[in-house]
């Protein structure tokens, strides 16, 4: 039985992206025309019609769909970004500059390996920047020979984009390395005890990998379920620990403000439409009102597109008080800056 599983696993390695149509903006609202994942996909593997599907024959696993979707319709099966960060952080005292590599570049030694870097969105990069004390090298020496080689440029563009938006000095701490000569891999020296500990951990991780996907036959959530996209979660964690100035920059460039005009008739259809739970109904005296929290908003704009009374406005940039609080969407916030 186990043998069968291992063979299955090896054969199905192609489709490592899970789709959840209930998160897709076009599945939630039939007049939405979001095309972000399809535009990004170079192998034309994504099809959106009555469902969202990825053709595993065509998919090159560049993971650009994962990072381009604002509401987490695509997820890498069993991937845990926090464990990647954890692994790299553990090395920090002994290794000057850990190396993060990708799974297809197995020729080079790495401190941690992950899927193709295409899934590293701006939010992921900010998180890496924040949690790494020592500079992190991203090994892109294999990209030149890889079908997903274009990701090297994408990643550099993303780093540049963050630096343009904020005063974070990303490139000081996150270093994409393309030239083999520049790559500086420092081996971890294990003592006897350490070696066996590492071996034990490795065995456990490999064994767990064989069993993790038991229940993931049907992955679609209820459409009414609210789920905060992982990218937004990373950003929310980041602004909590960043200095005020940078927090303001991020709030201005990556957060959104939703407000409603007087024409709002409290039908609350937007509350149902919102995939992330940024809008909610709050009882106020005898009446009910629409409340909004920017920390839960991914800026997809479904609320605005769907509003039948055309009352909803969504703007980039948040300049109100606490981004983690809900406030009445009827009180139009004026820019204070």
């Amino acid at each position: 039985m186990l043998k069968g599983k291992i063979i299955d696993k090896a054969l199905n390695a192609g489709d490592c992206i899970e789709t959840d149509r209930s998160r897709c903006m076009r599945m939630r609202f039939n007049r939405n025309e979001c095309n972000r994942c399809i535009e990004q996909c170079r192998s034309e593997a994504i099809e959106i019609s009555h469902d969202v599907s990825i053709s595993s024959d065509k998919c090159s696993e560049c993971m650009l769909c994962v990072s381009s979707c604002p509401s987490d319709c695509f997820e890498i099966k069993g991937h845990d970004f926090y464990s990647v960060i954890g692994k790299l952080r553990k090395l920090q005292p002994s290794i000057d500059s850990p190396v993060l590599g990708c799974r297809s570049n197995t020729k080079k030694p790495h401190h941690a390996r992950t899927y193709c870097f295409g899934y590293l969105s701006e939010e992921h990069i900010i998180a890496l920047y924040l949690y790494m004390q020592n500079p992190l090298q991203i090994d892109m020496t294999g990209c030149a020979d890889c079908k997903n080689g274009f990701i090297a440029d994408t990643l550099q563009k993303r780093i540049a984009a963050i630096e343009a938006k904020t005063s974070l000095k990303i490139s000081g701490r996150i270093k994409p390395v393309r030239d083999i000569a520049e790559l500086d891999f420092q081996d971890i020296s294990y003592d006897r005890r350490g070696f066996f500990k590492a071996l034990k951990n490795l065995t456990f991780i490999q064994a767990a990998g064989l069993f993790d996907n038991e229940e993931s036959i049907e992955h679609t959530q209820s459409y009414s379920a609210k789920k905060l996209p992982f990218k937004r979660e990373l950003l929310n964690r980041a602004i909590k620990i960043l200095p005020d100035e940078i927090q303001k920059e991020l709030l201005k460039n990556c957060y959104y403000d939703v407000n409603v005009t007087e024409t709002c008739n409290n039908c609350f259809a937007c509350v149902g439409m919102c995939p992330t739970g940024a809008l909610k109904i709050e009882n106020k005296d005898d009446d009910r009102e629409l409340f909004f929290s920017t920390s839960l908003c991914n800026g997809c704009g479904l609320c605005k597109d769907f509003c039948m009374a055309c009352s909803v406005n969504i703007e980039k940039g948040f300049s109100g008080g606490n981004p983690f609080e809900f406030y009445s969407a009827k009180n139009v916030l004026l820019c204070e800056v």
Binding site: R28, Y223, A269, G272, M273, F306
Partner: peptide, 28 residues
């Protein structure tokens, strides 16, 4: 019904059936 596949849909036997999983509660 704005969602895909429609939460409110027709079955082949002519019945109009509502799917709970896909309903977002917009009340259209």
């Amino acid at each position: 019904c704005p969602v895909t596949p429609k939460a409110m849909h027709k079955h082949e036997n002519g019945m109009t059936i509502h799917n709970q999983e896909r309903c977002i509660g917009c009340r259209l």
